[in-house]
């Protein structure tokens, strides 16, 4: 690290070193994707997608996982997400998550193939139930929850207030703005999902305040359980680098002759934990360098 070369006094140097290297440990696998491909008819949209994410453990702090997918339009991010959430059957390959209904054998949590409903999903179009008001939709999300009716109401009202949706809680989706719909869609999944939540472009169409809301909710989700895992896509590369502890760049790989192979795949993975850039709570020059590198990879894909 170039900090040692800098002409700073001993105290700031010490301080920065502490700040940069946040100790963490990696335990069980929480998501394992192997040779995944999806084709619609003859058209292969994504292929050869393999990656593994592990449960991150930080000393003295509950730390979930935040994983970002970036890539140019039409490269297959949404398609990949449909497979990750079990909404689309992979053409080849598997998506595995731990099966918490089984007990640990040989020190390992048994795995299972992801099925619809295992992973919460907020799609790019913020789809909601057209016949439910915001309040009714959130109530529906809590339908399987074991807490009492009054606790449910309290919980919903708290979220509505925090997310600035109190005023329109009795409005139907067709009476909401894009940002309001989107926040409702995110809330629905927050109340409904267990450890995993996939969000397709959760920051598009939000104003500065709303973006803070969503960022804050990511933090809350991450700090409420170590297994909580947020997977999101975005076109805002700086935001991805700032929020995520793991960033994947999806794009078209180059053929040997330099032309693009028009099938999406993972071009590069940035493990920001390893790079010492995760959980900084601010956007530093290092983050900017990573963002620049990601952009140049994207432009070539």
């Amino acid at each position: 690290m170039d900090i040692t070369d800098s002409a700073q006094g001993p105290f700031p140097l010490f301080y920065i070193l502490i700040k940069m290297t946040i100790a963490y440990e990696q335990k069980d696998t929480i998501l394992h994707v192997e040779s995944l491909s999806i084709a619609y008819g003859d058209k292969v949209i994504i292929s050869d997608i393999s990656f593994t994410e592990k449960d991150t453990i930080r000393k003295d702090k509950v730390q979930g996982q935040t994983i970002a997918f970036v890539g140019r339009s039409g490269r297959g991010k949404s398609t990949l997400f449909k497979a990750l959430t079990g909404l689309e059957q992979p053409t080849t390959g598997v998506v595995l998550i731990p099966d918490f209904s089984q007990s640990i054998t040989n020190g390992n949590q048994p795995a299972k193939k992801v099925r619809e409903g295992d992973v919460g999903f907020v799609n790019q179009k913020y789809t909601l139930f057209r016949h439910k008001t915001i309040y009714q939709a959130l109530q529906f999300s809590l339908r399987n929850s074991s807490i009492s009716a009054s606790e449910k109401q309290e919980k919903i009202m708290k979220y509505l207030a925090d997310w600035g949706l109190e005023q329109c809680k009795n409005q139907y989706p067709n009476e909401l703005s894009g940002g309001q719909k989107q926040r409702t869609a995110i809330l629905e999944q927050l109340l409904n999902s267990n450890y995993y939540m996939v969000l397709d472009e959760p920051f598009s169409g939000l104003d500065v305040g709303n973006i803070l809301n969503v960022k804050e909710s990511f933090r809350l989700v991450n700090e409420s359980h170590e297994l909580n895992t947020i997977i999101f896509s975005t076109h805002d590369i700086e935001l991805a680098v700032e929020l995520a502890d793991s960033v994947y760049v999806v794009g078209y790989p180059k053929n040997n002759n330099g032309t693009l192979n028009r099938t999406g795949t993972i071009l590069k993975h940035f493990d920001l934990k390893e790079m010492g850039l995760a959980w900084q709570g601010e956007f530093t020059d290092k983050h900017l360098d990573v963002a620049k590198e990601i952009k140049s990879i994207m432009l070539d894909s």
Partner: peptide, 11 residues
């Protein structure tokens, strides 16, 4: 998407 939305909510 509407069908998928319901499916993702554990319907």
């Amino acid at each position: 998407e509407e069908i998928d939305h319901a499916r993702s909510l554990k319907c």
